[in-house]
């Protein structure tokens, strides 16, 4: 049997201190880690259970934003009245993910660390640079319908599966962590996830033992919000393409725009060029097409996922119409 030690942390400080030895993983909801352990994709030697830490509250901030405890279950976050009222895209993204049972267990912090659903990552007999660095990438040249078209490298084309993280990216969330050596760190979500490059097994900037304790949301963006998820079936399917965004229009011009994308990228995807193409422009097809051009110029299909590029264009344009109240 593959045995592992199990320790339950009573305080965040104890959790971090308990991370001393290599092979340690924090476990909260376990909705991703336990599956991966059963398949021996993850083989920790020590689990530090953080699920009982007092990090399950949602609090309003003075600046009008929210501070969300890392252990707030996805279901609770989605149903929070303040989230529904001010961060509609986040509530919708959460409810578009997984199933009711999973959302009850999955946590806010854990969701940001969700690992890819790449079919070959899950197949321990297949080469995979993310799972077993240096073995190659079976998805390149294989069945890659669900893989990424943005941010890929010759080493990895796995897509990031989270819906919630896409909304967090559009909302400019900041992660608050407790470092292994003590002391807080604040990490803007833009800097949190890492592209695969030649180290696809390194997915975030978190250091060993560093614990996400809170997620801070700044005041909500101006304008109408959306989370649009396109998927193969109506529930319990990962995004082919998803769009999280908010756009405001003033005096017939787009005054502000924030847009992030799921299903397309190796991480929750946001490209400032998309927003630049919109701001200051009159809402309408020319601006929307330009935004789609900006988003998809660097996109690269790998065969069975080529369709994501035209699908993303169509979905983005449709979302922008909705967000700006522009009819066909």
């Amino acid at each position: 049997m593959r045995t592992f030690d199990y320790a339950r942390a009573d305080t965040p400080e104890a959790a971090v201190a308990g991370f001393a030895q290599t092979g340690t993983r924090f476990i909260a909801g376990g909705t991703n880690l336990l599956d991966l352990m059963k398949l021996q994709i993850e083989t920790p030697t020590r689990l530090v259970d953080i699920s009982r830490l007092p990090l399950a509250d949602i609090e309003e901030r003075e600046d009008g934003g929210l501070t969300i405890g890392a252990l707030v279950p996805n279901s609770d976050l989605a149903a929070d009245k303040r989230v529904i009222a001010k961060y509609e895209m986040l509530s919708r993204a959460l409810l578009a993910g997984a199933s009711g049972q999973l959302r009850n267990k999955a946590t806010t912090g854990g969701n940001l660390l969700q690992r890819t659903r790449c079919n070959y990552f899950y197949d321990t007999a297949a080469p995979c640079n993310k799972r077993a660095p240096g073995t190659g990438c079976a998805a390149i040249g294989g069945f890659n319908r669900i893989m990424a078209v943005l941010g890929t490298s010759d080493h990895c084309i796995a897509s990031h599966p989270s819906d919630m993280a896409v909304a967090m990216r559009a909302l400019d969330a900041t992660l608050v962590t407790l470092r292994a050596e003590g002391g807080q760190r604040r990490i803007p979500i833009a800097e949190f996830h890492l592209p695969p490059g030649d180290t696809p097994h390194i997915e975030t900037v978190l250091q060993p033992g560093e614990l996400i304790t809170h997620i801070e949301l700044p005041p909500p963006p101006a304008g109408r919000q959306i989370y649009r998820k396109v998927r193969d079936r109506a529930s319990y399917a990962f995004a082919l393409v998803s769009v999280a965004g908010a756009v405001s229009v003033e005096d017939g011009r787009i005054a502000s725009a924030t847009l992030a994308f799921g299903g397309l990228g190796v991480m929750p995807w946001r490209d400032p060029a998309v927003e630049r193409a919109l701001i200051g422009q009159a809402p309408g097809s020319p601006a929307f097409e330009a935004a789609a051009d900006a988003l998809l110029a660097p996109a690269k299909g790998h065969g069975s996922n080529d369709f994501k590029i035209p699908l993303a264009r169509r979905t983005l344009i449709s979302c922008l119409r909705h967000l700006t109240g522009t009819s066909l």
């Binding site: 659903r117 079919n119 070959y120 899950y122 197949d123 294989g142 069945f143 669900i146 193969d232 079936r233 109506a234 529930s235 319990y236 399917a237």
Partner: peptide
């Protein structure tokens, strides 16, 4: 390739 019920899709409710 898709040998689990997350990726081998059947209709959900």
């Amino acid at each position: 390739v898709n040998r689990d019920l997350a990726e081998y899709h059947v209709p959900t409710n």
